[in-house]
Simulated scan of single mutants.
Amino acid sequence: MLRFLTYSIIIYINSFFNRFDNSSIKCWEVFIILSRTKQYLRKNGYFYKKEYIRPLLTPDNIYIFRFGRDRLDNRLIIRYSHKWTGRQRINEIDLRLHKQKHPRIFENESELLNYLEGHLLKHEAKVRAREAEAEKENKVSDGASK
């Protein structure tokens, strides 16, 4: 009987710590977000600039990540706070592409990167199509004037 109680207590304690470890994975997401996002942007030829802000009136810290090819007009805003253990907890991830006023809010980095991959590729295709049309118009107008 004593062995059974000891064994059940050990299982209960292990399950408690396993739940604690699984929840702490999200705590370190700020560093993971930064590294994976930086890798993705570097790979696709984007430049970036980062800033840390600590507002005085709120307990949240803010990490602002500006990126773009020619101009830094896209923003990734990460609001995070600290747990009582000192670990970081992400409260909100906002993405504002092309100076949007209303952000897209994501819960984790994988959703953010999936959206970036799809949207940035579509946006680049539109920009290339506009550039190609502008070049065609320039060639036609140059050819007609000669």
Rank of each mutant, 00 (worst) to 15 (best):
M1E: 14
M1R: 09
F4C: 02
L5W: 11
L5C: 07
L5G: 10
T6G: 02
I11C: 13
I11A: 09
I11T: 04
Y12S: 06
N14K: 10
N14G: 11
S15E: 15
S15P: 01
S15Q: 09
S15C: 07
S15K: 14
F16E: 05
F17A: 05
N18P: 03
D21A: 12
D21I: 15
N22L: 12
S23F: 08
S24T: 08
S24R: 15
S24Q: 07
K26G: 13
K26F: 11
E29V: 00
F31T: 15
F31R: 09
I33A: 05
I33W: 06
S35P: 00
S35Q: 08
T37A: 08
T37K: 12
T37P: 02
T37G: 06
K38P: 00
Y40M: 07
L41N: 05
R42W: 08
K43A: 13
K43H: 13
K43Y: 13
Y46I: 05
F47N: 15
F47V: 08
Y48L: 02
Y48G: 00
Y48I: 04
K50T: 06
Y52L: 13
I53E: 12
I53N: 07
R54P: 01
L56N: 10
L56Y: 03
L56C: 02
L57E: 06
L57P: 05
P59R: 05
D60M: 08
D60Q: 08
I62L: 09
Y63H: 07
Y63V: 05
F65P: 03
R66W: 07
R66C: 08
F67D: 00
N74T: 01
R75W: 10
L76Y: 02
I77C: 02
R79T: 10
S81L: 11
H82L: 15
H82M: 09
H82S: 14
W84E: 12
T85G: 01
T85E: 03
G86W: 02
G86V: 00
G86Q: 01
Q88W: 06
I90D: 03
I90S: 02
N91S: 10
N91T: 07
I93Q: 01
D94F: 10
L95E: 04
K99I: 04
K99W: 05
K99T: 03
K99G: 00
Q100A: 15
H102R: 08
H102P: 05
H102D: 09
P103A: 11
R104I: 14
R104F: 09
I105A: 03
I105G: 07
S110K: 13
E111C: 06
L113C: 05
L116T: 02
L116E: 03
L116V: 01
L116P: 03
E117W: 09
G118P: 01
G118S: 10
H119M: 04
H119N: 06
L120K: 01
L121W: 01
L121C: 01
K122H: 12
K122I: 11
H123V: 13
E124F: 12
A125R: 14
V127I: 15
V127P: 00
A129Q: 11
R130V: 10
R130W: 06
R130G: 04
E131K: 13
E131M: 13
E131I: 14
A132M: 11
E133Q: 13
E135L: 11
E135W: 12
E135R: 12
E135G: 07
K136R: 06
K136D: 00
E137Q: 10
E137H: 09
E137K: 13
V140C: 04
V140R: 12
S141D: 02
S141T: 10
A144I: 14
